[in-house]
């Protein structure tokens, strides 16, 4: 089935055994990674209010409860507003920054790189607290969805840079040179040559940013006012322990996120052509 990556020397069972053990180990690894998600999904359809064996009968009532939860619906709406604004902003700003980082060499470039990526490496709790100190005791602002968006853009910008930059590294610049030699203005070259070629990367970056921002908790935790976003709503429930309603919510989120990611993935794969 697979082309051998090591030239096989002697096909004895002694050589097969480690491979078999390795495969078993890999299987266990995936069980570890997917068990929590599987538990949430299975018990979202189970009528028992607590997680117990054996399973009780099948029910959709936890999903119905979600539909009637107005606090949840409001939180989802806020999350969508925050995420859309952040995604658009971060995609524009991040794409603009990716070009010079890939295309030009300048002094201190490594340090600039490190500096621009710092917000995704520094733990979010520190960024969140620093922003809170700026917003409240220093500027005396009222915390709102605007302050949440400000915090999210800081986190999301570098992610777009990374995804778009990866696309630019594989970019054949001779195509641009050809367009310009044939008389296209730099602006025309950008719209007719560069932009179509990097578009899948930009869209993938936007989808990844969307997913991350929609789920972001810790910076939002410090920058949010009286409103709620979806992660903040979830946080208010999980602190009180296991609720089957949360299992239903989790299952919906899993399906939606995986859909978004598979789309982003297929967009990025297109570079292979």
């Amino acid at each position: 089935m697979s082309p051998e990556r090591f030239p096989r020397r002697s096909p004895r069972w002694a050589l097969r055994l480690p491979r078999l053990l390795l495969a078993l180990y890999g299987l266990l690894g995936f069980v570890f990674l997917y068990l929590p998600i599987a538990v949430l999904i299975v018990f979202s359809f189970n009528s028992s209010a607590v997680i117990t064996f054996p399973l009780q009968h099948f029910t959709l009532s936890w999903y119905r409860e979600l539909r009637e939860d107005f606090v949840l619906l409001g939180a989802v709406r806020n999350s969508i507003v925050v995420t859309v604004v952040t995604t658009v902003g971060a995609t524009l700003v991040g794409t603009a920054a990716a070009f010079p980082l890939v295309r030009t060499g300048f002094r201190m470039k490594r340090m600039v790189n490190l500096f621009l990526l710092l917000p995704i490496v520094i733990p979010g709790i520190l960024t969140g607290i620093a922003l809170l100190i700026l917003f409240v005791p220093v500027l005396n602002l009222t915390l709102s969805l605007n302050t949440v968006i400000a915090g999210q853009i800081v986190l999301a910008g570098p992610f777009v840079v990374l995804v778009v930059a990866s696309r630019l590294y594989g970019f054949n610049q001779q195509l641009e040179a050809a367009a310009m030699d044939l008389g296209a203005t730099p602006w025309r070259t950008f719209w007719h040559v560069t932009f179509p070629l990097i578009l899948p990367g930009v869209l993938a970056g936007a989808l990844i940013t969307f997913t991350l921002t929609f789920d972001e908790f810790i910076v939002t935790f410090f920058t949010i006012g009286p409103e709620s976003t979806l992660p903040m709503y979830i946080w208010s429930l999980v602190k009180f322990g296991v609720t089957p309603k949360l299992n239903a919510l989790a299952s919906i989120i899993v399906v939606l996120t995986l859909g978004t990611l598979l789309t982003a993935n297929s967009l990025l794969r297109r570079r292979a052509r």
Partner: peptide, 29 residues
Amino acid sequence: LVIMPFWTSYLLRVYAWTAILGDRGLINE
């Protein structure tokens, strides 16, 4: 497959472990 779980709700994945490891959780049950 390795990356995918990482993208789905962080809070709910942590919460899922209370449903696995708790006194009335998956393992104990």
